[in-house]
Amino acid sequence: MIPMRRLRFRPLAVLAALGTLALTGCGTDTRASGAGTAGPGRTVTAHQFMRLTTTHQATGMTLLEGPTFGADGRLNVVDVTAPAGEPKLIRVDVKRKTARTLFTDRRGAYTSAQFSPYDGRIYLSDFASGAIVSLAADGTGPRTFFSGEVDGARMLPDDIAFDRDGHLYVSDSLGMSEGEARGRVVRVDRDGGKATVLADGLAATNGIAFDTDHRGLWISELTENRISYLPVVERPGMSGRHTAVRVDGGIAQTDSIAVDADGNLYQALHGRPAMEVYSRYGEHLATVRIPGRTEGLESATNVAITPGGTKAYMTVSGPAGGYLYTFEALAKGVRQSNGG
């Protein structure tokens, strides 16, 4: 997700319009072998699939995020800036190219969505309240899964990922508003009873996704334009974290991240409607971009790859509206390809 102050077309005044977003709220520099953006990679063209939203009059913007496939094969997408009563979680039938409202409320600003392998519910991170909310798969029965402080500070939860047992991992953008590297990775037990900080000192923690073996987490740090790797099985926590890839984004910055069946990393870009794709060893494999003029489309925030297939759906947003674009991924979709 792109927190509120990061979008050029979203002034700080929008925080007041949303009514709930307040501006209060690192591993080593050693590169892994092969890290960086070696080689130009190939170009993959993403094509417009459908428009889901237009700019909201109340907030002056729209921002799609968190595409995630459910067991029914439908795609679920959040609109971070949707005002009260308008669709905040949208369910898309990609076969029929239709969309409907799955959930809305009065106060939430939801930045990601992901299905739990433990209870099958869909989990949303609320950047406004610092809470994690869950819903039944049909969008009913909302309840707070976790809220409150973690080690003395309320989270600014951005993206989420689940391990095989249903424990939840959160990219906490703490310190982002102040420009301080205080971001964290927080693990929340699947019953919501215990939260543990696995890493801190991160620079606006944003994307988070497990590798294919669930042995470690890929984490994108927006204000450093880098992807870090955090082991969670061996050498867990800060002692094992390292910078894995440095993204040459220019004016664009690293947003959400997803992983395909071959372990390739799909790094979304804020400030450019494109994604960069890297191997697990940091080799630059491809750039995904939309064709033609990009006026009115400013960021590609996230992606979900069809489970067991290679068709990918990328969320692209800007003053022109919120869109889904499609492209052929480099490998098949798995749980880590659901861009929570």
Rank of each mutant, 00 (worst) to 15 (best):
R293Q: 07
Y110I: 00
A331Q: 03
D165L: 08
G179K: 02
D200N: 12
H214S: 11
A261F: 13
E298L: 00
P231W: 09
A252F: 06
P273N: 04
L269D: 11
E298C: 01
G141S: 01
A329H: 06
S220C: 06
L265A: 06
E86H: 13
T223H: 11
A131P: 06
R215F: 01
R235D: 05
V14Q: 04
L52C: 07
S112G: 13
E224M: 04
P291I: 12
A268R: 09
A22C: 10
Y313H: 14
L269Q: 12
M50L: 11
V186W: 11
N225S: 15
F103C: 00
V197K: 05
T53E: 07
A204M: 09
I160T: 11
M1V: 02
A136K: 06
T43F: 03
R272Q: 15
S299K: 05
R74L: 01
V133F: 07
E86G: 05
W218T: 00
D93K: 11
G19H: 08
F49H: 11
I290Y: 01
G166T: 12
H284R: 13
V247T: 13
T54N: 09
T301N: 15
L18D: 05
H284P: 06
L135V: 14
P87M: 06
K88M: 08
D119E: 03
G27K: 10
A261L: 08
M4E: 07
H167M: 10
H214F: 15
R272C: 12
G249K: 00
S112E: 10
A82E: 05
P231D: 05
